[in-house]
């Protein structure tokens, strides 16, 4: 069955669609009330975020737009040190969208929300003219325990820079599908809940955290360098990259430093906490390939430097343009 404009009218068709997809799979006491707004419990400092998801293809190796929507939102909240609790989602459906496909996405979103320990408390559906596309907007709310102050500005001289795993998987998976290059690369889309919990329980001094998304590691570290007025110095041989992703990058003239992830994060801690933090991440789901990749210095403030395998030094900027594959 396909989505039509009738599904967006607010009448019976809309009601039936919601009942058979969103309400069925997101099923929870707050949402089930189907009020105009969700009333939830909470106190203290709130962390809030919003995000929109427009990825194509809608289903890709290792995930789909529904899973991605939860991971992206939850991870944003986690990075400030908050515990994610509530998610809202608005779906914009183009007429012609396949209802079975929509159901698969909604189911995946529900499963990922359960994995991440968050509740989808409110939603909205709109239908517009188009070609079967599906887009999702989310908002997320989390609660920030007292005493937590995590910020890129905290990066201090001598701090260790840790990445939670292999670079570039998500971007490589999407590009592989679009360019029809056959490989086993899967998106790494995942909620970082366990990793962040393990870091907090390890009682390390968390200076900064940020998830590595669009623009890749280079872009995020560049933000860190600028915010903290320091230098992020990395060692190329320590950067964890799956061989298939490296091979993919070589093929297309791409650099893993600029390839986006959707389930990896950077953690900056004082040197004396580095090993503890590393073990905490490695012992958590999705953190198996974590590595200490560099340190914060003042060699060239505001910049990211990479000590290359051959012995050179390279200054790495943030991503320029779109990271298009090169032939030349």
């Amino acid at each position: 069955m396909k989505i039509t404009m009738a599904h967006g009218s607010g009448g019976r068709a809309t009601g039936e669609l919601i009942a058979s997809t969103f309400a069925k799979y997101f099923n929870n006491p707050i949402l089930n009330k189907m009020e105009d707004s969700a009333v939830v419990e909470g106190s203290g400092r709130l962390a809030m975020t919003t995000d929109s998801f427009v990825v194509t293809p809608l289903i890709y190796p290792g995930g789909d737009i529904g899973r991605l929507a939860i991971c992206g939102t939850v991870n944003d909240l986690l990075m400030s040190g908050a515990v994610p609790k509530y998610i809202t989602c608005g779906y914009i459906l183009e007429d012609g969208a396949d209802v079975d496909l929509l159901t698969q996405i909604v189911k995946s979103m529900a499963e990922t929300a359960a994995e991440a320990g968050v509740t989808i408390v409110a939603g909205d559906t709109k239908v517009i003219e188009g070609n079967g596309g599906i887009y999702i907007n989310t908002a997320g709310v989390g609660f920030l325990p007292d005493g937590i102050n995590i910020s890129a500005a905290n990066c201090a001289d001598g701090d260790a820079i840790i990445v939670s795993g292999n670079l570039g998987d998500h971007h490589a998976a999407i590009l592989s599908t679009r360019m029809e290059i056959e490989n086993e690369i899967q998106s790494d889309n995942a909620p970082l809940v366990e990793i962040v919990r393990a870091l907090k329980e390890a009682k390390v001094e968390l200076h900064a955290m940020r998830d590595v998304t669009r623009g890749g590691l280079a872009t995020v570290l560049h933000e860190f360098a600028v915010s903290s007025g320091s230098c992020m110095e990395l060692w190329e041989e320590k950067l964890p990259v799956h061989p298939a992703v490296q091979g993919f990058c070589n093929l297309l003239g791409l650099d893993p430093l600029y390839m986006g992830n959707e389930g990896k994060m950077l953690t900056v801690v004082p040197k004396h906490d580095a090993e503890t933090a590393l073990q905490a991440i490695r012992g958590s789901k999705y953190g198996e390939h974590a590595a200490i990749i560099g340190e914060v210095t003042h060699t060239e403030n505001g910049n990211v430097l990479v000590h290359t395998k051959v012995g050179g030094v390279r200054t790495v900027s943030e991503l320029i343009g779109e990271g298009l594959p090169r032939i030349c």
């Binding site: 003239g253 650099d255 051959v310 050179g312 030094v313 090169r326 030349c328």
Partner: peptide, 16 residues
């Protein structure tokens, strides 16, 4: 060669 230009940058060999 454009690829030489790009690789010279990427390997950071100027500093050597």
């Amino acid at each position: 060669c454009g690829t030489h230009t790009a690789e010279i940058s990427r390997t950071g060999i100027r500093k050597m």
